[in-house]
């Protein structure tokens, strides 16, 4: 249907795309630019740095903010990966059951996932804070992983259920008829079909966990478990009265790199995952 297209139309498309790219990248470009400003340029109110320098990155990787930033980065990565892994595994089982088995309570599980997804984090944080202090989970990795599951599980279940419903499960039987053992059939036929969905779900879950701020600032208090978004509030200038703009922006850029890489590599899958899990006729 888009066979013949005039040059004018083509140019319009390119311009439109350019506008969207600008819209999406502008704030990112600004924070990158800020992170390369030297201390004296930070307040010059220009978009671009006059004397670009790596100084702010040195601050967070080897300078004064190192002991704050590196543990936070480690915590964020560790906690988010574990939370993602746990929720994808649990969601895989649940989604398989929902997609393939007939049992009462299917709708209940999906509605519960919905309710959990709309739950305001702030309502959970007060009681969790109190409870965690009581049982010693305050300021620990599990103390964050558990609430992160409330963020990642629902979306994992929907997305995976949507993916699994599209898998032609009959092919498993077909393979078995052709002489494969059931394990072989599962591994050779089903796993390759299901893997992309699982992978996509993992990426989306990771984004959500990576984004958390409320739990991060409320349920942690030391380097033992403080994640990056919370740590950004702890950076400091030469004294406690000075704004650590440089360190914050450099750290912000560093934590943005993984998500940008994931987006660049897997944009098609992520879009499929988000649209699939969300609205399906």
């Amino acid at each position: 249907m888009m066979g013949a297209m005039s040059t004018r139309e083509r140019v319009l498309w390119y311009l439109g795309a350019l506008a969207i790219v600008l819209y999406a990248l502008f704030p990112v470009a600004w924070i990158i630019s800020l992170s390369f400003k030297s201390q004296g340029d930070l307040t010059d109110r220009n978009f671009l740095p006059r004397n670009p320098s790596w100084g702010n990155y040195e601050t967070i990787f080897s300078g004064s903010a190192r002991d704050l930033f590196l543990p936070a980065l480690r915590n964020s990565l560790g906690i988010c990966l574990i939370a993602t892994f746990v929720s994808v595994v649990l969601a895989m089982f649940a989604a398989y059951a929902i997609a393939r088995l007939d049992f009462p309570g299917k709708r209940l599980i999906l509605s519960t996932a919905l309710v959990v997804a709309i739950f305001p984090a702030i309502s959970i944080v007060t009681p969790l804070f109190n409870l965690w202090r009581g049982i010693g989970l305050y300021d620990t990795w599990p103390g964050l992983i558990i609430p992160y599951l409330s963020l990642t599980l629902p979306i994992s279940i929907w997305t995976l259920a949507a993916f699994f419903r599209e898998i032609p499960w009959e092919m498993e039987q077909a393979a078995q008829v052709d002489g494969a053992t059931s394990w072989q059939a599962f591994r050779k036929v089903i796993v390759p079909l299901a893997a992309p969905g699982v992978f996509t779900t993992a990426i989306i879950s990771f984004f959500i966990a990576w984004n958390d701020f409320i739990y991060g600032i409320s349920l942690t208090s030391t380097e033992a478990s403080r994640p990056v978004p919370a740590a950004l509030a702890f950076f400091t200038g030469a004294s406690q009265f000075e704004e650590p703009t440089g360190a914050i922006t450099a750290a912000a850029v560093v934590v943005t790199i993984p998500v940008v890489v994931l987006v660049l590599l897997f944009q098609r899958r992520i879009v499929a995952g988000l649209t699939n899990g969300a609205v399906k006729g």
């Binding site: 049982i135 989970l137 300021d139 620990t140």
Partner: peptide, 10 residues
């Protein structure tokens, strides 16, 4: 479980 969790993590 507290002690386990705390022990393991912190």
């Amino acid at each position: 479980i507290t002690f386990l969790a705390v022990g393991a993590i912190s």
